[in-house]
């Protein structure tokens, strides 16, 4: 919606992502903690991929590499064939924690990217569209401490979408939403992705959410994260949770995560 309706110049809508043998390790006290273990993954332009894995396995770490916030300790991470070495507004990360700026109103928080890139004056109407999209119309002048956790997360989503990214990295963006808002935001995400053609990588704990949204689901092992399985969800949108195909895929995914009942 935002990006599709707003992009004025035609360009490649989605970014191709290639992760080649990427490893990451952190130094904690004197020992090193391996977090990613030679992860390799290719994502086609315009694809929607979900990343599933146990807590603490390294999913957020992988998204930080793709956003260009950190460099891998081994291997390479490529966007459109070019090594990712620094952050860029064409690759936007929606953080697990909304981390809004408490001194800015909702509108000013959503404007952040346009302001940082010096586009705010010409494209300020996009801010309102993004706020409307996440259903926060009327809260433009509220400060973050006046918002609920779910509203803050929606502001964080609007703050990312307003930049018209070509790669959208979502780190459990719907985690704090109530189930109703969550359902409608999932539908919004799918529509946004379909209209804009951007590439989307979604980290989630929720197997059902992964199957409803993504074309491919990548399953990670516990830390250090390795890719243990890949499920292709070849179903048309909009999907329904009781689709028998999805139900059997869910059983398979839960089994891969060691949660089979």
């Amino acid at each position: 919606m935002v990006s599709a309706a707003l992009s004025q110049t035609p360009r490649d809508p989605g970014m191709a992502v290639a992760i080649r043998d990427a490893s990451q390790a952190f130094a904690i006290e004197d020992r090193t903690l391996p977090v990613l273990d030679r992860v390799s993954l290719d994502v086609q332009p315009g694809e929607f991929v979900a990343l599933l894995g146990p807590s603490g396995c390294g999913k957020s770490t992988l998204l930080r590499l793709l956003a260009g916030l950190d460099r891998p300790s081994g291997g390479t991470v490529l966007g459109d064939g070019v090594p990712i070495t620094a952050p860029d507004p064409s690759r936007v990360l929606v953080f697990q924690d909304p981390t809004l700026y408490p001194w800015r109103t909702v509108r000013a928080n959503v404007s952040l990217g346009l302001e940082a890139q010096g586009l705010l004056r010409r494209q300020s109407h996009r801010v309102q569209q993004a706020i409307d999209l996440v259903g926060l119309t009327g809260f433009e002048s509220a400060y973050p401490h006046q918002l609920s956790g779910g509203m803050a997360q929606r502001v964080a989503l609007a703050r990312a979408l307003v930049n018209d990214p070509r790669l959208l990295l979502l780190d459990e963006p719907l985690g704090k939403l109530d189930s109703l808002t969550r359902l409608s935001m999932q539908a919004e995400l799918v529509r946004l992705w379909q209209r804009s053609g951007l590439t989307a990588l979604l980290v989630t704990h929720d197997v059902e959410e992964a199957l409803l949204l993504a074309q491919r689901v990548i399953v990670f092992s516990p830390r250090p994260a390795r890719i243990t399985a890949e499920l292709v969800v070849d179903r048309p949108y909009p999907r329904h949770r009781d689709d028998p195909h999805l139900v059997s895929l869910r059983r398979e995914a839960l089994g891969l995560l060691g949660l089979e009942t």
Binding site: A67, P87, P89, L93, F95, D97, T99, A116, R159, N163
Partner: peptide, 15 residues
């Protein structure tokens, strides 16, 4: 994290 957010959105050092 405030810096990370601004950096992914294209902020300069001055910003």
């Amino acid at each position: 994290a405030y810096y990370d957010i601004a950096r992914t959105l294209g902020a300069s050092q001055t910003f």
